[in-house]
Design a protein around this nucleic acid. Structure first.
Lengths: 110, 110
DNA sequence: ATTATTAATCGTAATATTGCAATATATAAA
DNA sequence: TTTATATATTGCAATATTACGATTAATAAT
């Protein structure tokens, strides 16, 4: 096992989970916050800013890129990363819809 | 390793990651959606609704309970679960603040 | 051409997660 | 008291994740 049974859930449920999962690590949270703060950021800056080894940061960046939340552009020997606004907005919409579900006020809960 | 270095991140970053992580599995997404839909839900209903074994569901419920997103009340041999409104709102606030960060419109991104 | 710089990839160790069968626990019903 | 029902816990196997040292790749500078 150790393998999520994605096939028994709806696409929407899997999408929410995937987005949430990528946010589910403080290093990736920190990277995203940096990219928002600085608009664009060289990979090396992130390694300096966050206290993790370069390969570790690179790996987290890869995951964020894979989900489309960031873009990377090569410039010389450096790569600068930035938020992919379109996909960030998409994630925001998906997550907000999930978070905003609510119980009717009158319902008495346990 | 395989061990997240939480100590190098801020409390806020770790909190965001923890909340996101618990949503980062479709079974827990499905459970939460059911609890919102039905207001309150017997554990057995969840096992029937979602196609996972009873111990697996029980484990996911435990994680959700541990983070305070749901409450469980024993009634006879059954346990009924429901959303913990207060903590759900707290998570919503934390996550929304993270998701709502934005780049200035005028900034040109890569 | 050689060397320096930057980031990605590979390989690997440690730990975490997912899922379930088997079992335990606890209450309800007979 | 015995039996049925519902949920939690235990133990375990399979897989995933996290982290990093070593290496590679690719460009820039000398």
């Amino acid at each position: 096992m150790g393998l999520t049974k994605t096939e028994i859930f709806t696409d929407a449920q899997n999408e929410i989970a995937l987005f949430a999962k990528v946010i589910g690590h403080p290093a990736r949270v920190a990277i995203l916050q940096q990219l928002f703060k600085l608009d664009t950021c060289f990979c090396g800056d992130l390694v300096d800013e966050i206290g993790l080894a370069q390969p570790t940061i690179s790996q987290h960046l890869k995951e964020l890129k894979h989900l489309g939340l960031i873009k990377g552009t090569v410039e010389g020997t450096s790569v600068y990363y930035c938020i992919n606004k379109t996909n960030w907005l998409k994630m925001k919409t998906v997550m907000r819809q999930f978070l905003d579900q609510d119980l009717p006020d009158n319902v008495e809960c346990c």
